[in-house]
Design a protein around this nucleic acid. Sequence first.
DNA 1: TGCGGTATGTTTGCAGTGCTCACATGAGAG
DNA 2: CTCTCATGTGAGCACTGCAAACATACCGCA
Lengths: 193, 193
Amino acid sequence: MSTSTKDGYHHGDLRATLLTTAMEMLEQGEQFSLRAVARKAGVSPTAPYRHFADRDALESALAAQGLRDLNEDLIQGDAMPATVAELAELGVAYVDFALRRPALFRLMFGNACDDTNDDRVQAAAAVHETLARAVAAVFPEADLAAITIAGWGMVHGLASLHLDGKLASDSPDDVAKQVRSSFAAVFAARAGE
Amino acid sequence: MSTSTKDGYHHGDLRATLLTTAMEMLEQGEQFSLRAVARKAGVSPTAPYRHFADRDALESALAAQGLRDLNEDLIQGDAMPATVAELAELGVAYVDFALRRPALFRLMFGNACDDTNDDRVQAAAAVHETLARAVAAVFPEADLAAITIAGWGMVHGLASLHLDGKLASDSPDDVAKQVRSSFAAVFAARAGE
DNA sequence: TGCGGTATGTTTGCAGTGCTCACATGAGAG
DNA sequence: CTCTCATGTGAGCACTGCAAACATACCGCA
């Protein structure tokens, strides 16, 4: 048995435990530090260093996981979108993710990402591709790269601005509506393409 | 004489000195802490607390200043834009600001902004209004709120994604081109409105 | 002119952090 | 059964934000 919790000197699966513990802390809004994670995992303050070079490494691993989760959320509305309205739902999902898991979202996008972390860059690329596919499905004849970047930018910006309270928004429903009308306002004219 | 640098016990204008010192550090990419700022200003580690309640307060003041600077950059192309291409230049200025002063930009938008800091919310509102005016000048008959938010979101998202290295971009010129084509791709169809 | 109050700076000290290094343990290869 | 090495522990350093208690000198007021 090499799964999670053994009670001897050696933990058995500390790396995974640290990741899930840290993720919980992010989810719960607790401010998070290597030491705090270790404490919560019931392990000495320096134990994490056996599994992560430094704090950034842990954060990168969490960010990678977050990007994978985001990608799943985006794909979940399985079918390729056919209309601008359906494409907008991808945007809604993106913004919703940011608002549901703000601390994680900030980890994923907030720092410089000068990453040699392959997991992470690959996960980011996957998100990009998901968005590109969706855009391509709706605007088959358009300049794919430009529209994809524009759309990603818009959605990401809306998420960030809402996260930071720069845009008025009472309820999550409100936010979703705002995202939809942004898509409508901007992409409506091309709907027929 | 109550201006900046006196050499006695009392500094004379510490608050301002701290702000400019901190701003320099942000500009220079030095990592910044209350203590480091105090050190660089040649003052004891806790002197700043006479002028700022805590670290967040200093950051908020810097963020407010940053928002004012950003607003100036946006207005600088004085004339109201008349075409999508001219509107795009506002976007270019926005993104350029973010890339030129990344640490400041992160301060301005990176944190939760649960601010009672009037300066700051007002400065943010001013930016919003500048953008709204510009959009209104180009699309006089459109749904102003929706397009403004969409545009702000797009520009802000592009800035953030570039800052975090999520979008390929070799040179600043490259980035500017990307911003322009995003505007073109998305707003082109409405240009005649 | 002198005096006291108060805004502004200093010192000391605490708890928390990231990280390094020397040491302990025990699981698994031989 | 033993030895090795991955994995855990502990003590310790430099740094941080922040809270008192204390020092100084600028100010209005007598």
